[in-house]
Design a protein around this nucleic acid. Structure first.
Lengths: 194, 194
DNA sequence: GGATAGGTTCACGGGGTCCTGAACCTCGTG
DNA sequence: CACGAGGTTCAGGACCCCGTGAACCTATCC
């Protein structure tokens, strides 16, 4: 039996709290809801599918919030909604491939925001190029701004690919691997940035 | 005389508006105030030191907001406060090295948030290691979480170094360089580039 | 059908962030 | 000294995001 998650007694081990809040903080930083991070972390740490009620009580959330949060996480592909046997209640389990998660987030960000901004700057650069009132210096500055945007886009791409590379397999491998192996892997990952 | 910035007539060229808002959007995405980005972009595009009043009218801000915004940007090292000659009013000019700016932001983020989270996860991992009630699987999961955090830290570092590398010199070089050179640089940087 | 548990939706309120506008401070200068 | 321009601070308000809690929907079982 999977420990009924004691609704009244939140006697959670200290390490779980630490991990939950850490993930919540990171997720919040990336512009999502803190509780989305906490839900994912809870599921990941427990390593099994939990019902909405268990999540709700485990994290002291309301019924409504839980419903919304799991739907959002599911939409992000961060959670799977499963039904077991003849049980008619949904259970949720964490996506296991952590890096797939990170990549998905980055791709979304890159797609929606960064590239849109780059496009706007490209338009601005085209306009200033035609503007007879603009001095060469001004044109150069707009051009440099656009170049910065492109560089950022590129760097994000490198970041994403790097994260991809030393992710799923490597992260697994790193756990408990001897220091020598870790160093070799790290060096390999460093080469991939070129 | 540096163009009085026409307080009543906001007849700004379209490209300037585009650039201003683009930068504002990016800055806002990174967790800062939209207007901080707009102020910096205005100063950068104008390429000269502007007074607080000019900024205020140029961006349709209040006196108070302007004062706060420039102080914050100054604190970030993103603009310089200068006094010219016997003029007793402050003027502000944009930091020219764009990448220094980006790097500073990333370093701050890395320093305050990412590493703090990593530390928390490290504590959690130490605790779960001692917890006799924890199964080996749980310990492994916490360990994997910590590994993810470390990988993220590493990736951010790569990002930062990459941004640093092809930044200042390369960005400058790219401006106005012939297409053939641009393509070679782009290939070197590992990007297809349309 | 009625009862009940699981699940969703939504109006509302708390809390946070940012801006405004006015009071206030501080120096030069007449 | 008084005045005024430049600059700062701060209370108030607008706005937005998120969670609550209750109403509502739906399916299963008796």
């Amino acid at each position: 039996m999977p420990e009924p998650l004691s609704p009244s007694k939140p006697e959670r081990p200290a390490w779980e709290d630490l991990a939950l809040e850490a993930v919540g903080t990171v997720i919040e930083f990336w512009g999502f809801k803190r509780n989305q991070g906490r839900v994912w972390a809870l599921l990941y740490l427990r390593g099994q599918a939990l019902s909405a009620a268990q999540i709700q009580h485990g994290l002291a959330l309301s019924k409504g919030a839980t419903s919304v949060l799991v739907r959002e996480l599911e939409h992000w592909g961060v959670l799977r909604r499963v039904r077991r046997g003849s049980d008619r209640t949904w259970r949720f389990e964490a996506e296991q491939d952590l890096m797939a998660m990170v990549r998905r987030v980055l791709e979304h960000r890159e797609g929606t925001l960064v590239s849109r901004v780059t496009a706007d700057l490209a338009r601005a650069e085209a306009l200033v190029r035609q503007d007879r009132a603009a001095t060469p210096e001004v044109r150069a500055r707009v051009g440099r701004m656009l170049a910065l945007a492109r560089a950022t886009e590129h760097a994000l791409d490198v970041f994403r690919r790097t994260a991809h590379l030393d992710a799923a397999p490597v992260v697994e491998a790193l756990v408990g691997a001897p220091a020598s192996v870790r160093r070799r892997l790290a060096r390999l990952a460093g080469r991939s940035e070129g």
